[in-house]
Design a protein around this nucleic acid. Sequence first.
DNA 1: CTGAAAGCGCTAACAT
DNA 2: ATGTTAGCGCTTTCAG
Lengths: 351, 351
Amino acid sequence: MAICRQGAGDRLLFVDMRGNVAITIKDIARQAGVSAATVSKVLNRKDQFISEETREKIWSLARERNYTPNSIARSLVTRSSRVIGIIVPDILNAYFTELVRACDVAARERGYSTILCNSDSDPEKEAAHLTFLASHGVDGIVMAASDLIPDAGLLERLRIPLISMDREIPELDCLAARIDTDYETGAFLSASHLIGAGHKRIAFVSGNPLASNTKIRRAGYERAHREAGLPIDPDLIECGAFNHRFGLMATRTLLDRTSFSAMCCMSDMLAMGATVALRERGLGVPEDCAVMGFDNIYIAPLLVRPLSTVERRISEAGQLAVDALIDFLDDPTQPRRMVLMEPTVILRETT
Amino acid sequence: MAICRQGAGDRLLFVDMRGNVAITIKDIARQAGVSAATVSKVLNRKDQFISEETREKIWSLARERNYTPNSIARSLVTRSSRVIGIIVPDILNAYFTELVRACDVAARERGYSTILCNSDSDPEKEAAHLTFLASHGVDGIVMAASDLIPDAGLLERLRIPLISMDREIPELDCLAARIDTDYETGAFLSASHLIGAGHKRIAFVSGNPLASNTKIRRAGYERAHREAGLPIDPDLIECGAFNHRFGLMATRTLLDRTSFSAMCCMSDMLAMGATVALRERGLGVPEDCAVMGFDNIYIAPLLVRPLSTVERRISEAGQLAVDALIDFLDDPTQPRRMVLMEPTVILRETT
DNA sequence: CTGAAAGCGCTAACAT
DNA sequence: ATGTTAGCGCTTTCAG
């Protein structure tokens, strides 16, 4: 925690640059000639019954000696850390980068800090992070879509208020809110746009085929086809993961297997990978193949050929999640929120 | 921390799903018929003098009742949290996303976790984060380039082992290592490549003009010109920030002000913004204007027109930083490391 | 081999 | 208006 050395007596002393012992509430108390309790009250602004004089003295002493409270000790007694944990599959996915940033901003605005964990969509890591966060006393957790159903037993046991983002989750006592995107509609809009533009063979690329958030999107894609009276060809479907590497591989596979004039990618990262694969084969976007993304990550409009995509207001979702969590922490009896965000289509230059 | 309710007696009880009180070392001790000290020893594997029998009993009890140690309490007494803090200007900048991810991976490999802070290149926020991290007892801090010189007094006072990445920093007692990139060479290579390709008027776009990491890059850009006997035109220089928004604006400004056939951007985000601005004006890359980036962020090769850039092995740098930090934590007497990473040029399709 | 005791820095009843 | 006391859950001598 800090570089320390043996003190004059027996106890370990934390020393600063000039060899002074690091400041605790007791030191302030001694110097001010009051008790630790009084210092605590003043510093926590529970000082209605403290004389103006001692108050002043304590504050000036604290400032002068650069007193910083030990949050660890405080958390131990108050059983609250004002920290919230955030678990996402992979912060390298720009969608989650934005989400995490939004959560962090929202949390800080309300006096909370965040601890970030990457799960790599691995349930083991996810469980480890959950335990880690619990053990570090976070007040709440925002958990975003990994592809798999979490260990509900663990979640129940931890009893830490939880916000679940974009994933199915069992009914939990500690569930503070669910923030979801209407994937079915999003995928439906995406496919419908492409169908409306005259495309008949549209590839569908998405994440883990076993995960509900892929199944649901696929349902939207299929509904668009049914409503347009178009057949659904399983050869056009490739599901694996939401990152750009899979987008690249899936597109190569599709290109080898069949033909199509448009792609319905279920994340922008996927769409970026797809675009690279298309170029590899000398196919122009959108002339030879149109590409739709999903998420509207902040780099989507920065691509040389700005990506048409499904907007899902990532930052708003992150903000919503954290606010719901902290509101729940403030008052756990309030009704649980279930938010379903409606996506919209943004047309740029890849379709 | 957890949902609690008033117990049978007076004290607050932390209850799990079945109404059981949350497990502490004492509970295990009571059930096993031993003392808390013994349980602590076993669970921490300081059990050379504990009988096989009690050891077994304690482990099985701990597992059965899902005991999770309270890290807060542990940190309070051990004065070590096995957490390291990471401060970056903005995780939305893909360069820092990668850096943070690499630090996190490296830290976890060695049994540490990370807490992330975004400073927005704001010294006030940076100071606040430093204080926050100190107060939360992190064992060390990795701090990456904000544009401004930090408050050395604060750093000295905190006395937390620090890794400084890509920035000038005063000689500090607690400085565990500095990881730097040779920006001068990087910028020199970038400009030289462009000059070698026949360009005579090359724009230079970089971050905060007052920050040393801009000045140093500018020196490399100018040296390339001098060595090639080319004049340096201040009209071609635009410095402000490293993000894509500034890249966009700067390029518009440059385009309005003067003419050039190539751009030397001091970050890939800047280059992405520049590319957008160029397109806006109907200029093709690289036919009408070549663009060089810097950083080689993972999306650089994913752009429709893959970006030529200066590679700086971001993940390796992050890994290096965390390893240096933890090595220092393990043995503070070892010599401080100063690493200067050498960048190389990667040619793709924008030049 | 095990336990008792002390204490990390702080807060919160309850006295005074 | 302030101090006393008792702990939060854990680790760590030191004494049996």
